[in-house]
Design a protein around this nucleic acid. Structure first.
Lengths: 347, 347
DNA sequence: CTGAAAGCGCTTACAG
DNA sequence: CTGAAAGCGCTTACAG
């Protein structure tokens, strides 16, 4: 028995008067071994409760069957949903997930990256923090030949695969949607410009305005992070503008929530006058007193495709990086995606 | 260099004309080694980008520095929040998380359990599925000496540590709260009785009714699972009762959402007449048109304490199981916990 | 203070 | 079809 008190190959071999190599082969259905021996081995292994030590196996095979995941936040519906997709595809392919949360901090991200490397994960799926701007750590990975895929938030200047949504297009659609409703006073509480999604969503916003002959007003554009706090601050900043807009397009759903909080605090009646649009939806929007109009972001699908690509790169290390961009569309509260039971399929 | 193309102890040793043992010791600040040598070693290790292979280390030390986590769902705010707490404490103690999602399926749970064991995680933190009823797999873990802690959803008959909330007390408080508001017609859309939280919350509900001289009406009690679908079905079932209640107490927040969906579908005006109470809160409740009254469930704290206890058991294998029960309280929409920025600490 | 030996539990060639 | 050797990259005693 192993130090740990667990059954090892040798334990089985001893009881069967075989060598551990034969046992190992038998358990893996190696053609070297006779059917009869295989059966004896498997039976006893089962009886003894044998579970192969994956550490030992990984050390020799140089494959751990694990994927390193780094997300900036976990208690945010977008990342939780993405993780659900990631978990689904990983499990289906017999990979385990080592989950790291960077807390939007670049230093945490780097530390996690190092740890995951020393754990010899087979590949990495990363959504960068809002602070991340140094491609150095990531290009180093590439040099070491570790498969890497960015999802949702990618970092420019790294030759890695990416799975994103059409950020610019989605933002464009949102603004155009507001324009078609007759609005021209549209503000943007945006993200940091050095993060891809921040820059792209803003670009879409501005382009849509211009295409519809609406001047871009700097005082109606706020830049910041991606969570509630920045939405809250963003709205406060908009109060300094000459007048308030009719529509506020928020760079993320959490930012939209912060904007709402600020509006309610300043004057709840503002909610009747200002419509909030957000990039990214939320399953509970349908219960809101003032539901947001949102750009549908397929979080789960993003996670699934991310893993899919990562697995392909693991299987074929010479594969060139892929760049998948998922389509988005605007959803109004009224055509919100409802649970299937509301579609008459159940109940 | 290792097969993987990565730097090993021997690579460093060779360049420095030392043995790998000395290098290993130097890097770990072993007193055996002279300060001067340590510095030379560390400098070169840094230059060569050495990262110790944790697989190899774990194989000899019999410690992986990983925790296995199994949750029934991930895209549910409760578990995402709990995971945030888990991640926080684990990271602070230099443990990594191997995350598994059981999808509320007992067979998935068992498979994940086996995998985590073969990965030699140092401990397990589990919230069981709504199907789980066989303690066998878990007691087997105990026999193998693998530290195990249940959080939120524990399984009876396993001598493992548990971190839960005061389910019965919380349910009791919720019902009492409704009674104090003058309601006597209180229904319960509950969980499965074989899952601890289901049985306890129902018990609290019934006890509160009795203590206030209100008869328990079986037709106002529905049993089922813990997600939206079961809430939806639950309300539909309540429609068969002689009359509708004034209050519906849902066993979880997702169940409360399903109930709401069903109510809206039957007749949106019902929302003016029936108040929904739920065990477990949600950060977005404050934006709801009809906010729920809820029993506060400290998800994050539950996760944190779970890891804390697990780490203690890992450090001291002879420790007796602990049972932590966190307090709950009823929160009305008006005294909802708001983001800190709304408390004037920011903005 | 430095080193040679042994071992963790597995798998991958190579013999027979 | 079965076995003996070698090795994955580390650490833990034990010598010197």
């Amino acid at each position: 028995m192993a130090r740990s008190g667990r059954v090892t190959l040798s334990d089985i071999a001893e009881r069967l008067d075989l060598t551990k190599v034969s046992v190992s082969k038998a358990l893996r259905d190696h053609p070297d071994i006779s059917t009869q021996t295989k059966e004896r081995v498997k039976k006893l292994a089962q009886e003894m409760g044998y579970a192969p030590n994956r550490l030992a196996r990984s050390l020799t095979t140089d494959k751990t069957g694990t994927l390193g995941i780094i997300v900036p936040k976990i208690a945010h519906t977008f990342f939780a949903d993405a993780l659900a997709g990631i978990s689904e595809v990983a499990t289906a392919n017999e990979y385990e997930l080592v989950l790291c949360v960077s807390e939007e901090r670049a230093d945490f991200e780097q530390r996690h990256l190092r740890t995951l490397l020393s754990m010899r994960v087979d590949g990495l799926l990363v959504s960068v923090t809002e602070e991340t701007n140094d491609p150095g750590v990531f290009t180093a990975l590439q040099d070491q030949g570790v498969p890497l895929v960015f999802f949702d938030r990618a970092l420019d200047g790294v030759g890695a695969s990416t799975v994103t949504v059409d950020d610019e297009g989605g933002a464009y659609q949102a603004v155009e949607h507001a324009v078609r409703k007759g609005c021209r006073d549209i503000a943007h509480v945006g993200g940091f410009p050095h993060v891809g999604i921040g820059a792209k969503r803003r670009r879409g916003y501005e382009r849509a305005l211009r295409d519809h002959g609406i001047p871009v007003r700097e005082e109606w554009i706020v830049e910041g992070g991606f969570d509630e706090l920045h939405g809250y601050r963003g709205f406060k900043q908009l109060l300094n503008a000459e007048r308030l807009p009719e529509v506020i397009f928020a760079v993320t759903f959490p930012v939209a929530l912060g904007v709402t909080d600020a509006m309610k605090q300043v004057d709840p009646a503002l909610q009747d006058d200002i419509q909030i649009y957000s990039f990214g939806q939320h399953g509970l929007n349908r219960f809101f007193a003032y539901p947001h109009v949102s750009v549908y972001q397929p979080a789960r699908e993003l996670g699934k495709q991310g893993v899919q690509i990562l697995l392909e790169e693991i299987d074929d290390p010479d594969r060139l990086p892929s760049h998948v961009e998922l389509e988005t569309h605007v959803i109004e509260p009224t055509d919100e995606t409802h649970p299937t039971y509301l579609n008459g399929r159940d109940g």
